[in-house]
Design a protein around this nucleic acid. Structure first.
Lengths: 185, 185
DNA sequence: GTCTATATTAAGATAGAC
DNA sequence: GTCTATCTTAATATAGAC
């Protein structure tokens, strides 16, 4: 058993996710990914039949996690308490492993994802999540507040980058505070 | 004097902006822009020395408008009233001409803009706008609220697309209500 | 499972005629 | 100011040896 961090397929996914997120999908060539891994492009094509399929592979991971979250919310009564509980769950979940990177990849790179079925799937899922969180009969402003409460968790810390004095923890905390405010108003 | 909607240069900018916004910068070729205009690629190169320069041309227009807005805010005392007044100004401004399209182009296409100086310029400008709106000594949550209050004006109506029953006017109104709520809390 | 070599395609960009 | 024709480059993707 060769001791490894993960099999090659997973390592390709990880490097691709990192580069696609930092530089953009179109701005990243398979050559660059291969070089980073110390293999050739042809090796990538053994594991994935196209560039798009690499995206499919890691977005799929996120879709699975989101599906569980949606199912959980459906077991709860709609309202501010459920939304608050959800945000705590979500904030924990997102800071684990690559889930946050996948979300960052997703909301950059919308144009690239437009042509991919997996992109549509994830967008629909996110809209459904907001719908079930707000409750189907909620007024438009409540639906908006709910949507923003979730999405601010992804971009919030980045928006505070102008203040170099703030620690990462302070950024996260401020973001969570605003999210809860929006979800429970 | 040939009667025209605008000179060729402006027509190129308009078509490029539309396609770059709907499909993405990388997903749109100069061939496609040229075909839409009924000219050849070479004609485009008479008016712009590169694809990137077309982007520069229309983002420049937005940068000029934003610069005026920043200057105006600087003449006002920082605080909730100024932020509310600003949002009304901003909402009017954005629904005029191509300003809204340029903002949509900007926040899709971040990866493409990363390599362009004009992209950096506009991002810095937006961060400065938020800084001066919130006041430099504002706490992190207020800064976040302020940032979100502005950016929600761009994406808000789109987030409500799940409700086909809503009119465009209702979407805009709900968005404005949330923006004001965030800015004056 | 990874390599070398290559096919294929389409993009951005230029030269020079009209 | 726009055309035809072409150059150059680099990308995705494949074939077949090892």
């Amino acid at each position: 058993m060769t001791e490894r961090t993960g099999d090659t397929r997973e390592r390709i996914k990880d490097v691709a996710l990192e580069l696609f997120t930092e530089q953009g999908y179109e701005q990243t060539s398979l050559r660059e990914i291969a070089e980073r891994l110390g293999v050739t492009k042809a090796a990538l094509y053994y594991h994935f039949k196209s560039k798009e399929e690499i995206v499919h592979a890691f977005v799929e991971d996120r879709v699975a996690v989101l599906a569980e979250l949606v199912d959980w919310v459906k077991t709860q009564p709609p309202g501010p308490d459920t939304r608050a509980a959800f945000l705590h769950r979500y904030a924990n979940e997102i800071n684990v492993g690559k889930q946050h990177s996948i979300m960052r990849f997703f909301h950059n790179n919308q144009p690239a994802l437009k042509g991919m079925a997996i992109g549509e799937q994830m967008r629909d899922q996110l809209l459904e999540l907001v719908e079930v969180l707000a409750g189907p009969d909620a007024d438009p402003v409540t639906k908006l507040r709910t949507a923003v409460s979730v999405f601010v968790l992804h971009g919030g810390p980045l928006l505070l980058m102008r203040d170099p004095a703030l620690t990462e923890e302070q950024r996260r905390s401020a973001t969570m505070q605003l999210a809860l405010e929006l979800a429970t108003k």
